[in-house]
Nucleic acid binder design. Structure first.
Lengths: 160, 160
DNA sequence: CGAGTCAGTTGCTTCGTGCAACCCAATGTG
DNA sequence: CACATTGGGTTGCACGAAGCAACTGACTCG
């Protein structure tokens, strides 16, 4: 049996980390948010071991962060979608990305930028549009390659 | 040699997680932010193995997230403080805590609340004071036990 | 003189991760 | 028709990381 807990902690940060603090979990959520939904696609994109990806996906589904939906039968093939709970991780991802940008991509500029779909303005690390000042949620924004990105047109078609 | 990287990832989230994505790291940062600064205090509070705490602290110091300062000589004893880079993790911690609150402390209410030092208003998961509307940073806020906390007067004297 | 404090280190065991190989059904290719 | 490829995994093995307990070493307190 696995231990997913930080015993004795009453803090919600600990609670949150029990679920998404495992290695790869947040990166999987980020990739699914950016439109990667299939096993092989996630595996290749992340460079994660297949068995680990498998257990992570199962756990994220159990925790109601991802939802597994068939997109064809025979052979059965599945896609993973974010639930509301999963989408709600957006502010945390944005905050982490902001921290990473500020402290490790100083010269090149951020490899990814987040823009407000509605007005095209850049989104701050607090999830607020710098253009129109609105407080945003996952569905209001889209990730695009930034100045620090070599190439990678992955987030191009970030559908709904 | 350890592997602290997520190879092939160009995203700042991956960069951030290389450093603070390890089990316990963020909880250590949170505790130091709440005024716990000493080895035994952190160890008892977190219930972490001593050797693991030791390596985590070393790594966080290496990464310039914590600073190790002697507070006495003979025998040499040290305290850990957050650097600016460490303090700057505050928005991410607040966002994670918000997510944890929303999705796992539904009935009890949040175990911890964050309040704006200046006006006493509650701070949202975006790090904005709900009272005065200001966008806050680590030094502007303080963590206090919330409705979901049984007891624990740990965060009582959250000095500067 | 013995007990306690503080900041670790050492040794051992178990758990988690990475890697490669394999499976199975269906579809594409020569 | 044979054979390779795609997609979504599972299995087995090796090794690094985490948990646990005991020990160290310099000092203080009663």
């Amino acid at each position: 049996m696995l231990r997913h807990d930080y015993p004795g902690q009453i803090c919600s940060i600990a609670k949150a980390l029990e679920v998404i603090g495992e290695r790869w979990s947040l990166l999987i959520v980020r990739d699914v948010m950016n439109g990667r939904r299939r096993f092989d696609d996630l595996q290749k994109g992340l460079g994660i071991a297949r068995n680990v990806l498998s257990t992570r996906l199962q756990r994220l589904v159990e925790e109601d962060i991802l939802e597994r939906r068939p997109y064809q039968e025979s052979p059965p093939r599945y896609e993973y979608f974010l639930t509301e709970k999963g989408l709600d991780l957006w502010p945390a991802l944005v905050a982490l990305q902001g921290w990473g940008d500020r402290h490790s991509s100083r010269k090149t500029g951020p490899p990814m930028v987040i823009v407000h779909k509605e007005c095209g303005g850049q989104v701050s690390d607090r999830g607020i549009c710098e253009e129109c000042g609105k407080l945003l949620h996952a569905r209001d924004a889209r990730a695009l390659p930034g100045p620090g990105a070599e190439a990678l047109a992955l987030a191009a078609q970030t559908s709904e």
